[in-house]
Structure formats: C-alpha cells, structure tokens
C-alpha cells in the first residue's frame, strides 16, 4: 500500500502562512503555550487540521519567526487531518515539529486516500518523507479496504 507523500505538506514547508481559526485562544506566556478551543481549523497550503482543542508549544518568546519557533502541537477531540487526497481521523494527534513526526491515536484511527480506507489505532507519519505507518489494535489486525479500480490508478 503506497501512499504519496501528501502528508509531507503539513507544517514542514514554511513557504506558506499558517492560518488558524477557533472560538477562543489562550496564550500562556509563562509556559510558552497557546491553547485554541472550539472548532479549531488550522490550514496551510493544501493541508488542513480540524480538532476541538489544540495546544501549541513554542520555544522562547515568539520573537523570531513564529512558525519556526513552534516545537510541538497537541490536538485532542475529533481530530481530522487532510492533505491533498489523503485524510486521517482519530481522537488525538501530536506533531513533534523538531523530529517532523506526527502520531495520531484513537480507538479507531481511519486513514483514507481516495476510496482506499485503512483502519488501525495508531498512525505515525514522517512529515518530511510522508511515510505513513499504521499499527493495528493489539488484539485485531489492520483492516484494509482497497477499491479494485484504484489499484491500477496508483
């Protein structure tokens, strides 16, 4: 199951501005964190993240470029990530911007590209290469649904 490096677009390219919309934002200077709550939508280029609660940790004061100073993002609550034709949904997702790794967890993590759907409980994506690695719940196996027509398409 090959996946294009669609996810590579997210957060690692700094050519485009990041736009964040939410119902409220609380910036805590003391812990260098900013918490967005209420239908949070983060978009950059073709990538988009939707969640109910997003905590952004930034290094030092946001004196330099704010994007570079973001070290970690923690999303919680109906997390939906889409990039080009790929989407992933789960309960929680954390982005480690330094190591460019995104880990999404939840009792049903659904990764889909076009009509292909894969379900597991932990998705790890390398944001630079776009390599996505989905683990199955410890008991069951990864459920993979590949639409016949699309296999020739890849």
């Amino acid at each position: 199951q090959t996946f294009s490096n669609a996810f590579a677009g997210f957060g690692s390219n700094d050519a485009e501005p990041i736009q964040i919309e939410a119902e409220s934002l609380e910036v805590q200077d003391k812990s260098n964190s900013a918490t967005f709550t209420g239908n949070v939508v983060v978009s950059q280029g073709e990538s988009q993240l939707k969640t109910q609660n997003l905590v952004v940790f930034y290094a030092g004061s946001a004196a330099g470029n704010v994007q570079q100073s973001i070290s970690r993002l923690e999303a919680r609550g109906r997390v939906y990530i889409s990039s080009k034709d790929q989407t992933a949904t789960g309960d929680e997702a954390s982005f480690d911007m330094d190591r460019q790794i995104m880990v999404m967890t939840g009792d049903k993590v659904v990764l889909s590209q076009g009509e292909n759907v894969v379900v597991g409980n932990k998705l790890t994506v390398n944001l630079k290469t776009g390599k996505a690695d989905l683990q199955a719940p410890s008991t069951g196996r990864v459920k993979v649904l590949i639409q016949p027509r699309s296999v020739q398409g890849n």
């Binding site: 700094d14 485009e16 964040i20 934002l25």
Partner: peptide, 21 residues
C-alpha cells in the same frame, strides 16, 4: 500577573511564513 492573554468570541490568526517575513 498570570501572564495570560485570552482571545474569545471567535479568533482568526495568520502566522506569516519565514519567506513572507
């Protein structure tokens, strides 16, 4: 005192990329 800035009632935020800056 607590060093907290709270934006409520809907927010829209744009962080410029390094290039734009």
């Amino acid at each position: 005192d607590k060093g907290i800035v709270r934006f409520t009632d809907g927010i829209r935020m744009v962080l410029n990329s390094a290039l734009q800056e």
